[in-house]
Nucleic acid binder design. Structure first.
Lengths: 165, 165
DNA sequence: TATTGTTATACTCTATAACTATA
DNA sequence: TATAGTTATAGAGTATAACAATA
């Protein structure tokens, strides 16, 4: 490959990247706002829903550290989120008998019902979307999103990056 | 189509919807957190970046109402965001001579440079993603995201939805 | 000493309600 | 009266620093 072709390819790639980034910014912001609107009916916030979902997935009780890690957050943030879910009786929190520094957070029946109601609403909306898509294209959509998730998940860092001037 | 087939199709659709929703929740949350990490290098928040981007697109000055609408936000929220950008000298705000109730918000040189630096970083990252995708699949990705954007954008409502018990 | 988690603090985003200025 | 925008207020999420309890 000549150097010229290399440069041309890079320019094409950058042009495509610019266009795709533009689309992605709009999609992710719109979806973010839409998501919060949906949750508002249940008096839940996005982080609260994500926390409920994580607690559900843990099964036999999550530690605060696990919950914070799952949400890519720092532990004092998760303390606040769980506190508010506790006040509303959606989760419960006990000491781990095997390590009394740790806590085990789990869903109450009320919390499980709330999570299921939200998940149901979200599934219905996604089904409405899929209904407008040709069946053979649905696989393609799943592939696309999975590729993006793999990329972004690998990019998440735990250390602060070098600030710009 | 028999009723049985109808039901079977709906179940298949709901199963696919469940799977896709699960993937989408993870992708959008991960991308959201990653986005904020990237912006942190510039001491910007997500809403601040979205506002800078909207101001840039308006060209000859945006009204506060336009900015709030573009971000699906309410105007006092945008007042706060723009106030902080003003303090940092990234935007300027003047009265509209044709209607002295309105304001015209525009980018300063510093704001334009900041926006360009962020956009550059985002384009590079998206190009890194695209570099791992076969060229013939890139079109497919764009189509997928566009379909999702069309769906979510249509779903955004301005009135509050019926709360759930 | 190291780990788990909370408290204290400060800042941003968010919405609603009340207000001012202009049309 | 209606519209554009801000101020006042309250609550949620976020991170950092300092702390307590347990290992």
């Amino acid at each position: 490959m000549t150097q010229e072709t290399q440069i041309e390819m890079n320019e094409t790639l950058m042009a495509e990247a610019r266009e795709l980034d533009e689309l992605w910014v709009r999609l992710s912001w719109t979806s973010h706002r839409r998501f919060e609107q949906e949750l508002d009916r249940f008096n839940l916030t996005g982080p609260q829903f994500m926390a409920l979902r994580s607690v559900h997935k843990c099964g036999n009780g999550c530690s605060m550290t696990e919950l914070a890690g799952a949400a890519h957050q720092v532990s004092p943030t998760m303390t606040g989120i769980i506190d508010r879910l506790l006040e509303r009786g959606l989760v419960e929190r006990q000491r781990d008998p095997h390590d009394r520094r740790s806590l085990l957070v789990s869903l109450t029946d009320k919390g499980a019902a709330m999570l299921e109601a939200v998940a149901q609403q979200k599934r219905i909306r996604m089904a409405q979307f899929l209904a407008g898509i040709a069946p053979e294209e649905r696989e393609r959509i799943q592939q696309t999103l999975q590729q993006m998730l793999d990329f972004f998940a690998a990019e998440i860092v735990t250390t602060r990056e070098e600030p710009v001037s």
